[in-house]
Design a protein around this nucleic acid. Structure first.
Lengths: 262, 262
DNA sequence: ATTTCAATGTCGCCT
DNA sequence: AGGCGACGTTGAAAT
């Protein structure tokens, strides 16, 4: 059964907190606290009013009243210990695995507390990540260039890594494609260059290299030009609309909707 | 004044929620909901019990009862709109800035609601980030190599970027150092290579290149060897101890305490 | 278990 | 405002 406390005493809050954590329930605290972290790095955060969350799998979060990301956290906590010490509640979340890391929260006042088991079994579905974009382009090479024939996804190129797409253009020259779903920077250019070089070393032919992205930074464009690499702009919104259209109409090819270029 | 509601009606919750959001207060909802997102990507999440947070700067989070990261979120929301529709509350968090993005939550049942203004003005201090490590190494070049003399931090190398450290070894040869505070991969090797090449082009001398990191992946080590680059392992724990020694802050670290009590 | 790469990455710094 | 690189990045997939 869920428990909700409004401005409880620290002792009361500690008791409910300890029991809930022991049962593996979700706990949400609105509380004044300070936080220390030591592990890969180290941090200190003085007193303030925050949202503290202990999840059912031991995930631990301290959120300040502003900002998207937590001030401190612990992803897969091996142990969460609740103690009363020095007129406050001390919550210690310890993780050992990749490296030993500790988050310690000292709670000095509790404004509100929720403790209970949340039921959430729904499936989370994500659309149009890079993987899906690659698949769409692989099946519709005309979106990149007329006459392009793609023969491989994730082409292995030794220590250089894996090229997103590989194929041959209308004139039979090998083509390597690097896809970015957001504005590409120069690291994308250098990544593509590594693939090109690895390919050239292995096959003795320098392939064309094409960066496919919704945009390319000025410096990256400059670098690409200088290095003989190409850039093909792709409209993600349009790709998204085409995907939805295709799903709605029941599995027709994107090529059916190709008026001109993308 | 803070408001806390326990299993309120949807109308009651909506009213409080709307008012709190309008005032720019923090709102924490424990509620059954479904979530849709469309923007750079798109996602769907069916009904389940979750923690919904609206922060004072408009940051918006939907947390499932497990996992460290939010299922859906909105970092810097331009607008948050609360509506009652179809027997539920619809919260729409819209952002326009980098690209138009919408998160829409349909709340079907509210288990608990907190709304209030949280006061948190404390400073967050982060220790041992890459910047600080660079400074420590700059002042203690012997940690990298005996006889090393460092002359510049963040050495500008044109379009290649900025090398972390630059100096000369005991024999007077130029040295470029790339620092990674976690295990370095091959992108670190290639990054260093870019600096080396840029330096060689500009000064007509090929400098030594040293990757300083707590570890180097096998492939990266292979690549470094082949490319004539060097690797110097650095013990982050030791650096941390040196830093504390240097600052003479007094008081032992959390890890020391934990090491003792286990 | 390690390595690699994408991410609705976010965040901060700097131009 | 845009580019760039770090992050206690996290997370997932592949080796």
């Amino acid at each position: 059964m869920a428990r909700i406390l409004v401005e409880p005493s620290l002792g009361e809050a500690a008791a409910v907190l300890r029991e809930a954590v022991g049962r593996g329930d979700t706990v949400v605290l609105i509380a004044e606290c300070s936080v220390e972290y030591e592990g890969r790095g180290a941090s200190r955060l003085g007193d303030g009013e925050r949202i503290i969350i202990v999840k059912q799998d031991g995930a631990f979060l301290v959120h300040r009243p502003v900002g998207h990301s937590p001030a401190n956290w612990q992803p897969n906590t091996t142990s969460i210990v609740v103690e009363e010490a020095g007129g406050g509640i001390v919550i210690t979340a310890t993780r050992v695995k990749p490296s030993r890391e500790i988050v310690r929260v000292r709670v000095t006042r509790v404004l509100a507390l929720y403790a209970g088991r949340l039921r959430d079994t729904a499936e989370f579905i994500m659309y149009l990540d890079e993987h899906e974009i690659r698949d769409i382009l692989y099946e519709n090479p005309g979106l990149i260039e007329p006459g392009l024939r793609l023969v491989e996804k994730e082409k292995e190129l030794g220590e250089a890594g894996y090229a997103d797409l590989y194929g041959f253009d209308a004139e039979g020259r090998p083509v390597i494609v690097e896809i970015k779903r957001v504005t590409a920077g120069k690291e994308a250019v250098h990544q593509l260059l590594r693939y090109i070089d690895a390919y050239a070393r292995r096959y003795g032919v320098r392939p064309r290299g094409i960066i496919v992205a919704p945009a390319l930074s000025a410096q990256a464009l400059e670098a690409a030009k200088r290095l003989g690499l190409e850039y093909k702009r792709i409209d993600m919104q349009r790709l998204w609309r085409m995907k939805k259209e295709r799903e709605r109409r029941g599995g027709r090819s994107l090529l059916d909707y190709l008026g001109g270029d993308v």
